[in-house]
């Protein structure tokens, strides 16, 4: 036989090592991002009964929106339902840690905030929680991104990021969007 029968196996092996190396480089970058700057998927397994959300507790109608607690932590609670967000506009401070908590009383929804890494599914039966920080002020679009029924396309909300100086909680620690 005129050509070396193992030469192709050698080339293949060299290529395979290079490719596994390339995959490992990406993996390393991903793991680093998850550990050091904390860029992780939202994975907070926390159950809540979708049928009685509105009766009592954290997600009753009057408790929604942004609230600053006694320790100064900012939490924004939003209910996604067919086919709107409640509330449709929330205010959050710039350069502060913000915790979003989303629930659904009916079907699967999902949302993202345009231009940020905020992205989560909202599954009935679970609280979806996202910790984040905004570094620029402005109104950001927050559309529903998972098909939730025939009114899905019109399900849109906004996140209004304001400088800390303009972020003024009332006596109950609550901040809401002004009428627009």
């Amino acid at each position: 036989m005129a050509i070396d029968p193992l030469s192709n196996a050698r080339s293949e092996r060299r290529w395979a090592f290079a490719m596994v190396g390339a995959a490992m480089m990406m993996l390393f970058a991903i793991v680093w991002a998850s550990l050091s700057p904390h860029m992780n998927p939202p994975s907070n397994i926390e159950n809540v009964d979708p049928n009685t959300l509105h009766i009592a507790g954290e997600f009753t109608e009057d408790n929604l929106g942004t609230q600053v607690d006694a320790k100064g932590r900012v939490t924004t609670r939003i209910v996604t339902s067919q086919f709107s967000f409640a509330p449709e506009c929330v205010v959050v401070p710039q350069d502060m840690q913000v915790t979003f908590r989303f629930v659904s009383p009916d079907v699967i929804h999902g949302l993202l905030v345009v231009g940020t890494n905020i992205n989560t599914m909202v599954v009935p039966g679970y609280v979806s929680q996202v910790h984040t920080m905004f570094d620029k002020p402005g109104d950001m679009l927050m559309p529903c991104h998972e098909f939730c029924g025939l009114g899905h396309s019109q399900m849109v909300a906004h996140v209004r990021v304001v400088p800390i100086a303009d972020f003024k909680p009332d006596e109950n620690g609550r901040v809401a969007c002004a009428e627009h």
Partner: peptide, 24 residues
């Protein structure tokens, strides 16, 4: 082709993903 693929991935990683800030 694969080198360009890694470069493109790194561009998105460095210039889109990391600046969009922490979540989780």
């Amino acid at each position: 082709a694969v080198a360009l693929l890694l470069v493109a991935w790194a561009i998105i990683y460095l210039f889109v993903f990391l600046p969009r800030g922490p979540v989780g």
